[in-house]
């Protein structure tokens, strides 16, 4: 048999065999089960290897995906940090603005109170604020930014919306020195707003003042508000000076001993008014 005939015979035989197998497989014959070694050798390893490859491929995909996610999250972190820095800067700016607005609000409030006070007072006044020697706890004097040019002169009363602050003891062209009511040299004639008992409040050099020259049997109790009596014409009448903090009556003593807490908080002094004499400049 020639090579060509051999090929043709083999071809036709295999073709026939294939068709038989095809028919048998289609009909549901268990040819695969009849040739388990072949199926095992070819099917299982390729299936297992295929599965392993598929898993490996999936793992690789997961890895690439996670790298992508990490890269993108890195970018996101960088963006967030940038945004955070911008927001911090913005917060600082807003805080500064808020501080400014708060200051303006408080100033406005103080000015309103002062304006109210100014309208209440029958006297001409000039506005000022402390520029030096500001007492934090208890000082004896301070400097304000109003002087002779504004009509301020020695002996004028200085007050704020809370009460009497002190008296001008020295005045230059643009500045003045004010003796506070806590100064031992300071004294002011007062009246108890409740009982109308009169007395003199005198500074001690400390945070409190003393009420002097009040008879021991007079009606003075802690909590009483002491206001200016208006005597002497320096201080406006009925203006708060302080509150009675403690009263002490000792047997045999003619006068009582009373401690007075000033109405003004000297650690929080803001705008002030200097009460001008009649005919002074109004500022």
């Amino acid at each position: 048999m020639g090579e060509r005939a051999l090929r043709l015979t083999l071809f036709l035989s295999l073709l026939f065999l294939s068709l038989v197998l095809l028919m048998a497989d289609i009909k549901g014959d268990t040819i695969r089960e009849k040739v388990p070694p072949i199926a095992w050798v070819t099917g299982k390893p390729s299936l297992l290897l295929g599965e392993a490859t598929r898993k490996g491929w999936l793992e690789l995909n997961h890895l690439l995906e996670s790298i992508k996610v990490r890269l993108s999250s890195g970018e996101a972190i960088e963006k967030n940090l940038k945004l955070q820095a911008q927001l911090r800067q913005r917060i600082r700016t807003l805080e500064r603005q808020l501080f400014t607005y708060q200051e303006a609000y408080l100033e406005n409030k103080r000015l309103k109170a002062l304006l109210h006070l100014k309208n209440l007072l029958k006297y001409r006044t000039v506005g000022a604020y402390p520029v030096g020697g500001v007492p934090l706890l208890w000082g004896r004097d301070m400097v304000i930014n109003a002087g002779r040019d504004q009509g301020v002169r020695k002996g004028l009363a200085v007050l704020n919306s809370s009460g009497i602050v002190g008296v001008v003891i020295e005045a230059s062209r643009e500045k003045s020195t004010v003796m506070l009511i806590t100064d031992p040299a300071f004294s002011i004639h007062v009246v108890d707003k409740r009982s109308r008992v009169i007395g003199v409040v005198k500074g001690t050099g400390g945070p409190f003042c003393n009420l002097q020259y009040v008879m021991a049997d007079r009606d003075i109790i802690p909590g009483d508000l002491l206001v200016t009596s208006g005597m002497g014409g320096v201080y406006p009448k009925g203006y708060p000076v302080g509150t009675v903090a403690k009263v002490k009556r000792e047997p045999g003593e003619l006068f009582m001993k009373a401690t007075v807490r000033p109405s003004v908080d000297f650690s929080r002094l803001g705008y002030l008014l200097v009460v001008l004499p009649e005919g002074g400049t109004k500022r």
Partner: peptide
């Protein structure tokens, strides 16, 4: 081709022919 057909899911002959 026959081996290819023997893999799971194949039909005997479709690749062999």
């Amino acid at each position: 081709g026959a081996i290819q057909d023997l893999t799971p899911g194949g039909t005997l002959g479709v690749n062999a022919v």
